[in-house]
């Protein structure tokens, strides 16, 4: 359940930003999570709800933007999108794939008042 630690980190960052940019309440937190980031969106949502209580994020909506997994297919010699780490190449059906992207775990922006 490292998603709770991740949410704690996210909320600490937002609390710092709230002091710096003088806002009191966050309505929406938009984050980008790659398919290969190793986090479970459901667990993130749960962790966010727990970790945000009594903070500037209390009651905020967590919007998770799902980013595709990217890999280089040695057979097709090009970059392809994957739905998960064990998915075959969508073009040739092969499994000789080197992951190249999709491990993003970023906060994009906030809607605040």
């Amino acid at each position: 359940m490292h998603e709770l630690s991740i949410c704690q980190s996210l909320i600490d960052m937002i609390a710092d930003e709230a002091r710096r940019q003088a806002f009191n309440r966050v309505e929406v937190v938009r984050i980008e999570v790659g398919r290969f980031a190793g986090v479970e969106p459901g667990a993130l949502a749960f962790g966010f709800e727990v970790a945000s209580r009594g903070t500037v994020c209390d009651g905020a909506r967590l919007e998770i933007v799902d980013l595709p997994g990217l890999a280089y297919c040695f057979a097709c010699e090009e970059s392809v999108e994957l739905s998960d780490r064990l998915a075959p190449c969508p073009k040739c059906g092969g499994g000789r794939l080197q992951p190249t992207g999709g491990d993003e775990l970023r906060v994009k922006d906030l809607e605040v008042v």
Binding site: M13, Q21, I31, R106, V107
Partner: peptide, 10 residues
Amino acid sequence: GRTVALERDI
């Protein structure tokens, strides 16, 4: 209300 761009790794 406003949007605050962060674009930062969590």
